[in-house]
Simulated assay, not measured.
Amino acid sequence: MTDTTGAREPGDAPAAPASAVWLRGQLLEIASALRPDRRPEVVREWTDRVRWRDPAPAGHRFLFLLRVATDDRPTPPDDALDAFTAAGWTVRTQGSGPDGESWTAAGREDFDVRVCTGAGRGITTFTGWTPVIYAAEQLLSQPPFTRRTADGILCDDCHGWGVCQGCGGRRPYSGGSGGYGRCWCAGNNAGPGRCVECGGTGLLTAEEVAWLRRPHGDDDTSRRPPPEDGHDSSTGAFLAVSRRPCRRGEFRCSWRNTLSRTDGHLLSHFHATCRTCATRRTHTFRLPLH
C-alpha cells in the first residue's frame, strides 16, 4: 500500500493481503467496463487502523480511491450502478447531495464500495474497502466504521465501535468496571453498554464537534482562496486535491465535485469535511473551456 492512515500515525500497516489485491483489481475492472475509452487510475491506496481500547492497532482495513475520467461527458449514476450489478455487486443505498451530486453504496460479501458522481460534468470516483484484517486471533466483529468509511467524525472514545470501552458493550451487571459489577455506562442516556460520548453511533457529525475546528482553523467561505490555475481538466485537479492534507496533516475526505461557468471559465469546485478535525475544506480550480 502506498499510504498509511495519516501523518500522525506511523507506517506500520502489514502487506496487502489477497483480499485487498482482489478488491483493487475488481474496482479497476469495473471502472474500465464503465468507461472503456478512458483508463481509470488508482489515486490513493492506504489503510485505516482499527483500535480496541489500546492505542496499538488491533487490525487494519485496506482502502482504494479510483477516479473515472469524465471531463468530456458525464457518467450517469445508473451506468455506474449497472456496472457494479453486472460484476456481481449488490446496491445497498443510494442518495444525492445538496449540489446535485449523487452517490451509491454497493457491497459484495464483506467488501464495500462507494460511488460518487459529481453534478454536471463532475468526476466519478470509486472508494472501496476490505473487511478488517486483524493482526492476531481476535474475538472482535467487524467495526461499524473506520475513519475513512464513516459519514462523520470517528468517535475518539470508542474508535467507531459505538460500545463502551470499559465493559466492552457487555451487559453492565455481568462484571466490568465501576464497582459492584456495574459499569459506569449503566447511567448513560444512550443505554447501558453503549459509548457515552457518541451515544452508541460510533461517530459524530461535524456540527457536534465544531470545537475541533477552532484549534485547527476552518476553510469557511469568508476565507475561501481564489480559484487556482494550472490544470487542464477536473480530473487533473482532483488528482492534486486528493493528495493535499488538512492543517493537521490528515488527507481523508469524501470529496464532492461540482462545476460551474463564470467569466468565460469553467470552475471545478471541491468541498469536503476532514475526517479527523472536522475542518470544512474547499478548493476551486479554474479550467479552460473546451
Rank of each mutant, 00 (worst) to 15 (best):
Cys185Phe: 04
Arg223Cys: 10
Gly178Phe: 04
Phe251Gly: 07
Cys195Ala: 02
Ser234Ile: 11
Tyr173Trp: 11
Leu212Lys: 11
Leu239Val: 15
Val132Cys: 04
Ser174Gly: 10
Pro215Ile: 05
Pro131Arg: 00
Cys155Asp: 09
Pro143Val: 07
Asp157Lys: 00
Cys246Lys: 00
Cys198Lys: 01
Cys183Pro: 06
Ala190Tyr: 08
Pro172Cys: 07
Asp218Trp: 01
His159Ala: 11
Gly179Pro: 05
Arg170Tyr: 08
Pro192Ile: 01
Phe126Asp: 13
Asp157Leu: 05
Leu154Tyr: 06
Asp229Gln: 11
Arg213Lys: 05
Gly166Met: 04
His216Gln: 09
Gly217Pro: 12
Val132Trp: 07
Ile153Val: 14
Pro226Gln: 00
Gly181Tyr: 03
Cys198Asp: 12
Trp161Ser: 13
Cys253Ala: 14
Pro172Ser: 09
Arg213Phe: 07
Phe145Tyr: 15
Ala186Phe: 06
Asp232Thr: 12
Leu154Val: 15
Thr127Ser: 06
Arg213Asp: 11
Val209Ala: 08
Arg171Glu: 15
His159Ile: 05
Leu204Trp: 10
Gly178His: 02
Asp218Ile: 07
Ser254Trp: 12
Ala210Trp: 06
Arg148Val: 10
Gly202Ala: 03
Thr149Met: 08
Pro245Phe: 01
Val241Glu: 13
Gly230Leu: 00
Arg182Gln: 14
Gly162Leu: 06
Val163Leu: 09
Cys198Tyr: 02
Trp184Arg: 02
Ala150His: 10
Arg182Asn: 12
Gly193Met: 03
Ser254Asp: 15
Tyr180Ala: 13
Arg214Leu: 09
Asn188Thr: 11
Ile133Cys: 06
Arg223Leu: 11
Glu207Thr: 13
Gly128Val: 09
Ala136Tyr: 09
Arg182Ser: 10
Leu203Asp: 03
Cys183Met: 02
Ala150Ile: 13
Arg248His: 14
Leu204Ile: 04
Leu239Ile: 14
Arg170Lys: 03
Glu197Phe: 03
Cys158Asp: 15
Tyr180Val: 06
